[in-house]
Each structure stands twice: as C-alpha cells, then as structure tokens.
Write a protein that binds this DNA or RNA. Sequence first.
DNA 1: GCAATTATTATGTATGCACATATTATAAAT
DNA 2: ATTTATAATATGTGCATACATAATAATTGC
Lengths: 230, 230
Amino acid sequence: MTNHSHHSVRESIRTRIENGEWSLGALIPAEKDLSTEYGCARTTINRALQALADEGLLIRKRKGGTRVCAMPVRYAKFEIPIIREQVEAKGDQYRHELVCKKREIPPSDIRAKLNIEDQEKALYLETIHFSNSAPLAVEERWVNTQAVPEILQASFDDISVNEWLVKTVPFSSGDVLFSAQNMNEKIAAALKSDAGKATFVVDRTTWVGDEFITAIKLYYQSGFELYTQL
Amino acid sequence: MTNHSHHSVRESIRTRIENGEWSLGALIPAEKDLSTEYGCARTTINRALQALADEGLLIRKRKGGTRVCAMPVRYAKFEIPIIREQVEAKGDQYRHELVCKKREIPPSDIRAKLNIEDQEKALYLETIHFSNSAPLAVEERWVNTQAVPEILQASFDDISVNEWLVKTVPFSSGDVLFSAQNMNEKIAAALKSDAGKATFVVDRTTWVGDEFITAIKLYYQSGFELYTQL
DNA sequence: GCAATTATTATGTATGCACATATTATAAAT
DNA sequence: ATTTATAATATGTGCATACATAATAATTGC
C-alpha cells in the first residue's frame, strides 16, 4: 500500500465512497488511521480529504472527524455561454449585427439593476447573433457608461459587445437568471420566428467590485438547448 | 506582511489579479519571490496559487512559471434543482402527487438514452409537484428497472421518486439539458395553464458507472426562473 | 445534580527540507 | 549550423514536525 500520492489517495477514497464502503453520513477513518493504512504521511491524507471536502463529497469537522456528505449536493457547472464559441463549436459560422445603439434613460427595472440615478443616461445596444446566417439569439444590453466610459468610443464591427467587455473588464462577478418566455412580436421578427413561440431567456447582470457594468437579456431561437454534464 | 495563511494569500492575490496588477496572460512572480514578499514559506504560496489554478484563474507550468489565465472561462454553477428544497426555501409548502405509474416498453428515444433492449419494459412515473397547492412542475420519468429492481417495491407516498433514488444510488453521474418549449395540452392541463404557454424544461439522464438509471423530463410552470451567481 | 473547568482528540495550518519533474536556456559535440 | 548533452529553474510532491483550533468527553467544584 505504499507509493501513494495525494491524487491516488483521493481517487482511492472517492471510489470507496462510490462503492458504498461508507454509507451516507457515515464516519470515515481518521487521518491518522488512513495514513497508516495507505502508508503515507498524514499531510498527504489531509490534502486528499480536503480536496474531496471541497468537492462536497465529504464533510469535515475538527474533533468530529470526517464523514461522507449526508446530502450529496450535485452541482451543474457550465461555461457562461459566449455565443460566438457556441456557434463555432458546432462548426458553424458566427456573425452578429448591431441593430440599435443609443444613449437614453433606461427603464426603472434596469436603473435598479445597474444602480443608476433617476435621470442618468445609459447606453443601449441591441444585437442579433447569427449561426450560419440563421438568427440564433437577440441580445438586449444596457451598459452603465459611468462605469465603462470607454465603450462610447468603441466600434463593434469586428467583435461583439460581450467580447469587448470581457477583454476590458475581465474579472467581473455576476448573476444569471434562466427562464422560458413566449416571444413578443419584436423578438419573433428578429429571430424570423412567430410571436408566442417559446424562447429560452438568459438574463444576466455583471459588476466589478461595487460598480454595475451591464445588464443583458438574451432571447434564444426556439429549439435552443443548453447542455451540461454533472 | 507577516502572519499570512494560505487563505489570506489566495484572496490577496485574487484581488491583485482583479485589480489588474497583472494583465491577462501576464507572468506573476515566482513562488520564491512571493514567499519573501508575503513573509511566509513557499509551501504556503504554493497552496494559494494551486487553489487559484484549480479555479481557473491562473495557469501554472513547471519552469514556465505562473500566469494569469489568458481566457478566463467563467463558469456558472448551481445546485441541481431538487424541487422540494426549491419550494421549501421559499417558505412554501411542498406536496407531490403521483398521477401515473406503469410498466411498459418505452419509446425509442428513451430506450436509446437508458440503453434498454428493444422489447424490454421500463417503469414510467408521472408526478406533479405542488408549491402551496399550486402546481409548480410536471415530471415525466422513466426508470431502468433492470438497474434498480428495488424500485418496483417502493411506495412513493411520503418521499418523491427523486428523493428515493438519491438515497438509493447517491453517487450517480448525469447530464442535463435546459430548454424552453411551448406547453402541449397535457402539460398545460396538469399545470392548470394554457397550451402554447412557454415552459422551462429540464431534461436529465442519470447513470451509475455504465448502467443507466433514469431519464427525467421536468416541465416547470410558466414564469419559473432558475437563478445562479457567478 | 448541574455548571464550570480541564483534558483529549481530529482536523487545520505553517514550516523547512528534500527530491521529482517538466521546461527552458546554455554549452558542447558533430 | 544543427543536433545533442547539460545545467538551471519553477513548480509539484512528500514528509516530519510543531502548534492552532474547535468540539467533545471527562473531571471537578458547588
């Protein structure tokens, strides 16, 4: 049982959990015991167990010991859809079209999201994303120009607004809301579909520190699917 | 600059990256240098940087050094919706109703998903989930009875099929597909809504090892939203 | 009997050290 | 000049040790 790296210990213990050697919520041996069993230092066991705890497979408590998570929470994890990459991953050709760009006072729900004063203007951009010349998604975006004034100078012929923002403010936080809606006339027209058809909607707000950058609403073509593996 | 745990070092470096001290793809100081800067051992810096690399914020190469990830991939991560918890988290009362339970030969797409032979039967279960006596979601589920024969004996008065499965085969893998669809007559009736309304659909397949366990399709009430923070 | 104090215990963290490994830079050989 | 060996270097890993910290168990005092 010698020659064990923290990797191999981690995978060994993961397997033992999955095989049901310790049931849900059960206490597993202490680091000290596992270190003698695997013939390695306690530090090595510690690294392995901490990694499994980070994943949510184990729960650790000082003195209480380590137990298999009683309620193994399964996370779905997927990349934020960057439309160009979604399209190009399929082998299709990506293209986008800026159909509207104006500065005006946003509606109240957007003002609240972006933390903008009552009479303050913001930048509104409307883009249609194409996959092989078929419309894939309509993007409605408000940008807080106080936070990112440079955007007023940027032209969006080559890269999309999103890509520009990713390059300019790379490490942002945000929240995302997924929902299903019926297309209104405007969206249906842009997607060359029919009003009432179901559209997958991604609603996203992005901020850096305490400054709100942008609020985006993406309406996907009907039939669009978002895939994830657990 | 003394008294630094690997936690504080990690967060300090994260902040420095977010503040743009090192730009995208730039090389950051070597562990040795950071250890003198922070006044701690190299091991401590190593743990901090490895954690940030696991998150995808840094890319590390032996001899090549550590650099800020040039293409910071942002992941959205959220718990697999367990309906009872979604409901109870809102403070509402959860209830479910098994409206159909039968053994029969599944349609071909399900047979493919569950890897079931042509003439093999499977268990079909249809459940309506309620939040405060308002229908929240309709669940259509096929269970591979060869993989989980015990399920034929289980009664689902107290716990839902999903909870039963989580307890019985806790460490499963799976994939998930999100989409938006228009409700058909049956779904609309079950949700006390109208045909054609947009419904958020979660399509999920679960397996353990190489055995396929179950395929679920969840149709959520119109207006349903799935929230995540990045 | 019950509260307050004091061990005991398992994990958490930091450190110094040694060596492994991958990669790049440099020098030597052809 | 090109290939081949060699050295240098940054990260990867393991270990022994020490002490910190949190939670429980045992003990003591009233």
